[in-house]
Each structure stands twice: as C-alpha cells, then as structure tokens.
Amino acid sequence: MVKVEGLDKLLAEHPFFDGMDDASRKTLAGCARNECFDVGDMIAKEGQPAERFYFIRSGSVALEFHTPGQDGLIIETLHDGDVFGWSWMVPPYEWSYDIRVTELTRVTSLEATCLRKKLKKDNALGFELYSRFMPVIAKRLYSARQQLTDMYAKK
C-alpha cells in the first residue's frame, strides 16, 4: 500500500512546492505516486490522455514532436526540479508532445482526475496550485519564444 506520508515528504523536497502549507501538500499527496523510468521509456505520447503530471526529482527527459517517418525532434530537455505535463489542466486533456526519458529519472506524479475532483471542492487549493503553475508556464513560454528568434543564425 502507498504511504501518503512518504509522498508528502517527496513533494516537499521539490522546488515547485516551496513554501506550500503542510495541509495543502498533504491533500495533493493523496493523488501522488512515486515513479522511476529507464532511459528510452516513453512517459507520454502526443494525443494520449493527459492523466498525470510530473515533478522531476532526478534525471532528465526530452520533450519531442513526433515527425512521421523520422525520429522525434527534441524541442526541450528538462532536468532535476523541473515540472512537465500541464495538459491535465486544459481540455481536451491530451498530451501535446512526446516525453522520452534520456537518463534514469525519478519523478513524483499526480493523478489528474483525482486532483481535479479535489480542486473543485477546494478552490483555495486550486488557486494555490494554479498560481504555482503560472510562473512555470510563463518561463517555458519565454524560453520557447527565445528559441523562435533563432538567435545564433547567420545574419
């Protein structure tokens, strides 16, 4: 049986949860799972239901766009302390890209349906969680826009 208390401690160690009160974190831990992936594992594939989202404790993953007839094109790599999989927040709750493991990776994941139910009942917790996601999303969007500038190209 999964020990919720242990998962709460794992969540507390991740920077995403810095400063979150114990009660909120324990509520979230009720939807959490501790997971480990080997190199080459596909955690998610584009178009699949986004049933979980992930907090990397150690390791790295590649976000890839699938290209028919070719290997995936890596658009970003994520590492210790990063978060991925916010498609769980946006209908139709499907992954927008593939997630491939590039080194042994330990994550804590939260189950989306469980979480959505809890957040519907507890709006304050929902606000808390969304407030933490927004800076992550904004930073990732800013990075993506920097990549779009193709700044190292010959000009």
Binding site: G72, E76, T77
Partner: peptide
C-alpha cells in the same frame, strides 16, 4: 545546450539562459 536536435543528441535542448539556474 542547443536550440533543437534529433534523437542522436543526448545533451541539453533549450535556450542557454536555462543553464544559468543550475
């Protein structure tokens, strides 16, 4: 880090500013 890469690249992908934090 590089801005984009195929699967034969095992290093970082992303902007150089993302390397600063770690």
């Amino acid at each position: 880090t590089v801005d984009h890469a195929g699967r034969d690249w095992a290093g970082n992908v992303g902007v150089v500013t993302r390397l600063i934090g770690r």
